[in-house]
């Protein structure tokens, strides 16, 4: 067991990280718990909000994808003439034989009656008096292209007058809306990141001010600027990592709670597509890393500026 541990500690990879985080040595600059705590809280909250923003962006992306692909995988043909039942059935057959079409069906009188049966026999008999619906619902292969044009051509060649509606009007709107949503989520994410970097830089500078005596001593003893910067950076990298982890855990708990509520009552808005998959949680794993990197950068900049003032 002991042998095993000593092997881990001697591993260059481990040593690199412990050096990066400054966990293998006594800190040369004093660690001030009172100063670190509020900052940890701020960074945790920022990170939790960041995770939620990122996950919302993910939901937005997936919902938009689901809606657009749903719209794109179907189209409607309006048969204007001739629209007697036999011809409509012929049009359905032609449609079914066109490349890229998965399914095609018209609403027949029998099917309509079947659907309306539950509402009472009277309504069903009313249908006999109404004109026949002349719409064909077409399901498309997901990667079909130009099927709409082909259908138009095929049916026209067979003497039909048709109007093919590929929903492009709606899907265009949805794509536009979802692009705005994605943009907003990403902007929120960016704003949160900038705010957390700024607050860490502020805290690092304040910390250095209270420790300027220690920084000065190290400087006079012959520490290189990079050495002192590393000392400061290691501390804040650690803080960023820990606070980031707290934030990610907080976000995960919130999402789990939200998910439970959704399962109890509200259902997904689209046809059963799950908007969050378990693998989306990589966002929660990456968040502490981003937080650590941002903290490291902020601390580095603050430390460099402070050292510049010394001779």
């Amino acid at each position: 067991m002991r042998f095993y541990f000593s092997k881990i500690f001697k591993n260059p990879f481990f040593q690199y990280f412990s050096k990066l985080l400054g966990i293998n040595e006594v800190a040369l600059l004093p660690t001030n718990g009172k100063q670190a705590r509020p900052l940890t809280i701020v960074v945790s909250i920022m990170c939790a909000l960041g995770c939620l923003a990122a996950l919302s962006a993910r939901i937005g992306f997936r919902a938009a994808d689901a809606w657009t692909s749903e719209l794109k995988s179907a189209l409607t043909i309006l048969v204007e003439a001739p629209k007697d039942e036999a011809n409509i059935l012929r049009a359905v057959q032609i449609t079914q034989q066109t490349k890229g079409v998965k399914s095609a069906s018209s609403m027949s009188r029998e099917k309509a009656k079947e659907l309306l049966k539950n509402y009472g026999a009277n309504i069903g008999s009313l249908l006999d008096e109404l004109p026949l619906p002349n719409l064909i619902e077409v399901g498309l292969d997901t990667n079909s292209k130009d099927t709409a044009k082909e259908l138009q051509a095929n049916l026209s060649a067979q003497g039909f007058k048709v109007e093919v509606d590929d929903h492009s009007r709606y899907s265009g709107e949805i794509v536009k809306t979802s692009a705005v949503l994605r943009g907003a989520a990403l902007l929120a994410l960016l704003a949160l990141m900038i705010a957390s970097v700024a607050s860490i830089a502020f805290a690092a500078r304040a910390a250095l001010e209270t420790q300027s005596e220690c920084v000065q001593i190290l400087h006079l003893i012959g520490a290189e600027d990079e050495f002192v910067i590393h000392e400061v950076q290691a501390r804040f990298t650690r803080l960023g990592l820990i606070a980031g982890a707290y934030g990610a855990i907080g976000a995960a708990i919130l999402i789990i709670i939200a998910n439970l509520i959704m399962q109890m009552g509200a259902s997904d808005l689209t046809s059963g597509t799950k908007l969050l998959r378990w693998w989306d949680f990589w966002i929660l794993l990456v968040a502490p890393l981003i937080s650590a990197i941002a903290s490291a950068l902020a601390a580095r900049i603050a430390a460099r500026d402070t050292l510049k003032e010394l001779v």
């Binding site: 040595e25 006594v26 040369l28 004093p30 660690t31 220690c214 001593i217 003893i221």
Partner: peptide, 17 residues
């Protein structure tokens, strides 16, 4: 350095190297 014990204080010059 006020937060370091004597050993660590005397180690500082080595560590900066």
């Amino acid at each position: 350095l006020p937060h370091l014990n004597l050993f660590d204080n005397l180690a500082v010059p080595f560590r900066t190297r």
